[in-house]
Computed example of a mutant assay.
Amino acid sequence: MRAYRIEHYGSLDGLVLRDLPQPPTPGPGQALVRMRAAALNFRELLILAGQYKAMGKDMPIPCSDGAGEVVAVGEGCSRVSVGERVILTFYSHWFGGEMPAGGDILGRGGSVDGTLCEYACVDENELVRAPDHLSFEEAATLPCAALTAWSALTAGGGLLPGQSVLVQGGGGVSVFALQLAKLFGARVLALSSSAERLERLRALGADELIDYVRHPEWHEEVLARTAGAGVDLTVEVGGGATVERSVQATRVGGRISLVGLLTGGPGLSEAFFYRGLSLNCIRVGSREQFEQMCQAIAVHRLRPVIDRVFGFDEVPLAFEQLRQGRHFGKVVISID
Score class of each variant (00 low, 15 high):
227 A>P: 10
56 G>D: 09
145 A>I: 08
186 A>V: 06
149 A>N: 05
21 P>I: 07
302 L>N: 09
171 G>Y: 00
194 S>L: 00
19 D>C: 07
264 G>I: 03
230 G>P: 12
188 V>T: 14
146 A>F: 14
130 A>H: 05
199 E>R: 13
324 Q>G: 01
31 A>D: 05
161 P>F: 02
277 L>E: 11
50 G>D: 05
72 A>S: 15
87 I>Q: 03
245 R>Y: 05
266 P>L: 02
226 T>I: 11
202 R>Q: 08
169 G>F: 08
61 I>N: 06
156 G>H: 11
113 D>E: 10
288 E>N: 12
44 E>Y: 08
217 E>Y: 12
335 I>D: 02
47 I>P: 03
12 L>F: 14
2 R>L: 13
295 Q>V: 13
240 G>F: 08
110 G>T: 07
270 E>N: 13
97 G>V: 08
30 Q>D: 11
133 H>Q: 06
187 R>E: 04
326 R>W: 06
196 E>W: 04
80 V>P: 02
228 G>N: 08
154 T>L: 01
279 L>K: 04
111 S>C: 06
270 E>K: 09
245 R>W: 00
106 L>M: 15
8 H>F: 10
118 E>D: 11
64 S>Q: 12
242 T>G: 07
301 R>D: 10
175 V>S: 01
305 V>L: 10
312 F>D: 01
150 W>V: 00
140 A>G: 05
140 A>M: 02
280 N>F: 14
136 F>D: 15
182 K>E: 02
79 R>D: 02
10 G>Y: 10
104 D>L: 03
321 Q>W: 01
52 Y>F: 15
209 L>P: 06
18 R>L: 14
242 T>A: 12
86 V>I: 07
189 L>R: 02
275 R>D: 14
307 D>F: 09
274 Y>H: 15
202 R>W: 03
325 G>K: 01
73 V>C: 11
318 A>K: 02
20 L>A: 13
279 L>S: 01
190 A>Y: 09
58 D>E: 15
199 E>Y: 09
232 D>I: 05
140 A>K: 13
40 L>G: 01
211 D>S: 07
176 F>C: 04
59 M>R: 14
111 S>L: 00
126 E>R: 05
76 G>Q: 14
127 L>P: 10
8 H>V: 02
246 S>F: 14
32 L>T: 00
31 A>H: 11
189 L>E: 03
2 R>K: 15
52 Y>N: 14
240 G>I: 07
31 A>W: 08
71 V>C: 12
53 K>I: 11
208 E>K: 15
254 G>P: 05
335 I>Y: 00
149 A>C: 03
106 L>Q: 03
25 T>H: 10
235 V>E: 12
110 G>V: 13
131 P>R: 13
73 V>L: 13
76 G>R: 04
284 V>E: 06
125 N>L: 14
41 N>T: 12
175 V>A: 03
290 F>Q: 06
65 D>N: 04
282 I>H: 06
27 G>D: 04
264 G>P: 09
150 W>K: 01
150 W>D: 04
106 L>I: 11
309 V>Y: 07
95 F>H: 11
153 L>V: 05
272 F>Y: 15
79 R>I: 09
318 A>Q: 09
148 T>R: 04
204 L>C: 14
309 V>H: 12
214 R>T: 13
73 V>Y: 01
206 A>S: 03
181 A>L: 00
261 L>W: 11
308 R>V: 08
